[in-house]
């Protein structure tokens, strides 16, 4: 699975901000670290703000800070804000779907999707930050 650009931006932003909830960072500072477009990130941050995951801090030295619950917010919660997590069974019908071969293929794809969904839904931002920490060592 390849995450869309906006989703990756959002995940980088929430992980960066959640790593120190008291710290304020500008969109520019986050964009620079992850080599992403500031304009694109600014739009993503506004979406995250509407969901209560980040809040904008106004005035000199303003920026964004994390305002969510890192132990309760999963990767899937963030991904769903930016892309549709469609399953093969909920998508458009394709030719051959109703044949035994099509049904068997759907069964295999559903197995992969179930594992993918469970993985994203079981990893919270807090767990993800621990994983990031292991990559820093």
């Amino acid at each position: 699975m390849r995450l869309q650009k906006a989703t990756r931006c959002a995940l980088y932003a929430v992980l960066e901000l959640a790593s120190d909830p008291k710290r304020q960072l500008s969109a520019n500072e986050i964009a620079e670290k992850y080599d992403i477009s500031t304009n694109h990130l600014a739009k993503v941050l506004r979406s995250l703000g509407r969901e209560g995951l980040v809040e904008a801090v106004r005035g000199a030295g303003g920026g964004y800070r994390f305002s969510g619950n890192a132990k309760r917010t999963t990767l899937l919660d963030v991904i769903r804000l930016f892309e549709t997590v469609e399953t093969v069974s909920s998508g458009e019908r394709e030719p051959g779907d109703d044949t035994p071969e099509g049904l068997a293929l759907t069964q295999v794809i559903e197995e992969v999707e179930a594992i993918e969904r469970a993985t994203f839904h079981s990893i919270t931002l807090d767990t993800m930050m621990k994983l990031v920490g292991r990559h820093r060592k």
Binding site: I115, R117, A118, T119, H121, I123, T124, D126, T127, K130
Partner: peptide, 18 residues
């Protein structure tokens, strides 16, 4: 079970991966 999100999240928080 991948349907048991509570327990899976717990083990993930302990650093367990697939």
């Amino acid at each position: 079970s991948h349907k048991n999100e509570l327990v899976m999240s717990f083990f993930r928080s302990q650093g367990m991966m697939a």
